[in-house]
Design a protein around this nucleic acid. Structure first.
Lengths: 242, 242
DNA sequence: CCGCGTTATAGTCATAGTGACTAAGAAAGA
DNA sequence: TCTTTCTTAGTCACTATGACTATAACGCGG
């Protein structure tokens, strides 16, 4: 048995890696779950679309780098975002130029505006997630198709057992708006009555905040809510058909 | 808005990082959940205990490195192990010598033997997880206390909604042995009758494999089982008292 | 070889949570 | 005013759960 640990060696004697963060930034636009992608202007993968990301700087950790990139890409401060680490992708040939490991993150936020065009040739836009696997969907650079697939599954399952759906709506919100988040992310609508019952029965999921007065729709004025302190849904709210 | 992506820059122009894997290897010994630690012989943290780990080599990904380290540390091939990525730890000052990011993994296996002493001065031994936070528990090197805490929570929650507990017992096993896994990991015993009902009602969790004939205990000969193809427990089996 | 403690297995029963519905009422617009 | 749309408030059968009780097999000590 070999009992050497990493630190038995001199770390600087080892081949250098570049470390980056990549972000799958999700929002809901026009009732559809969407993700921000940037078009690559240079090889490798020129013309393909990639998750926004960048290098981890010498004096920051990966989460700080992710927050920095998030602010740079969306033009928004971290307020209202949820950000979490997803997984780390380390295949030796994932970047043809050199060894790059990427610490992927997932971020959610309420409906965000269109990104402004950058100063370089690259474009950035929101893609509906149901476009990603279609024929006229974007070609994805590096292993970003895999990262995106993992990120989507993370978001979908997190809605089941956490209150993160409320991060996708602006406060105050109605239960119909919250339900629309589930519908967009899961691709199917939870039953109306059962959804209300579950959300209202989960202590601290939502907090009553008066009643909408603005009108605009037919039907009664809906109750308004803000996000509550609860983070977990117990027992979980399952996707229909499981 | 800045739309540069990681690949807009030259990766080799960036400061080098070392990339390692660290492993929290769990097993159950004497009815107690235990984790393998190695004692450090050199600074930094000489005399402290650390998770086994090592560098990711130029031609392998982190998972391959983790399997390699796992085999080196336990002397066993990967057969029967469950291994999964936990999270990546990237604090700039987590290693005082240089910038090292660690892709932490969690591994489970049935009761493993004592590690043999290595050729260097370092020792390796199993620690019961309930010793880790006690006064005469080990001092932990680097940020390994944090990694271990996250790994423990991962194991505990994975027992709730996956069939991974069966990875901790040798086949064939009895339901009492499987229940002992839950008891060890959660620190409390699930109700006997309800546990049986739940396991047997979960399609594909366990597969009947005859009846024990060896005896040794009082009471009837228990039924034997092997691991089934199911990976998820739906709905989850919750820890008592939630 | 008898009885006792231990252990495996098989129930019971009240309650909570869910899926699938139905019903009533409020507002907007024709 | 009438119709459509939408929020709110149920109902009911069924499933899953927590907390028990009951029965039977086996080893062992006397």
């Amino acid at each position: 048995m070999i009992l050497l640990t990493e630190e038995t060696y001199d770390p600087s004697a080892y081949p250098p890696f570049a470390v980056t963060v990549d972000l799958a930034i999700f929002t809901i636009r026009g009732g559809a779950l969407s993700v921000l992608l940037v078009e690559r202007g240079e090889d490798p993968f020129a013309g393909a679309w990639a998750l926004p990301g960048g290098f981890v700087e010498p004096d920051e950790d990966a989460e700080q780098a992710a927050w920095r990139e998030l602010a740079e890409e969306t033009g928004l401060t971290g307020e209202g975002f949820h950000l979490e680490q997803l997984a780390t992708y380390t295949s030796p040939d994932r970047d043809p130029r050199m060894r790059v490991v990427s610490v992927a993150h997932v971020a959610f936020a309420p409906d965000l505006a269109d990104p402004r065009a950058g100063s370089d040739a690259a474009a950035a836009r929101w893609w509906r997630v149901d476009e990603l696997s279609s024929d006229d969907g974007p070609a994805l650079a590096f292993d970003h198709a895999q990262i995106l697939e993992d990120a989507l599954e993370r978001v979908r399952s997190k809605l089941e057992y956490t209150t993160l759906a409320a991060q996708f709506v602006r406060e105050p919100f109605t239960l119909a708006e919250l339900r629309a988040v589930y519908t967009a992310v899961w691709g199917m609508a939870p039953d109306l009555g059962n959804f209300r019952r579950k959300v209202l029965a989960t202590d601290g999921f939502v907090i009553p905040a008066g009643r909408d007065t603005s009108g605009g729709n037919p039907g009664p004025k809906p109750l308004l809510f803000t996000r509550g302190p609860a983070t977990a849904i117990q027992p979980a709210m399952l996707r229909p058909g499981t």
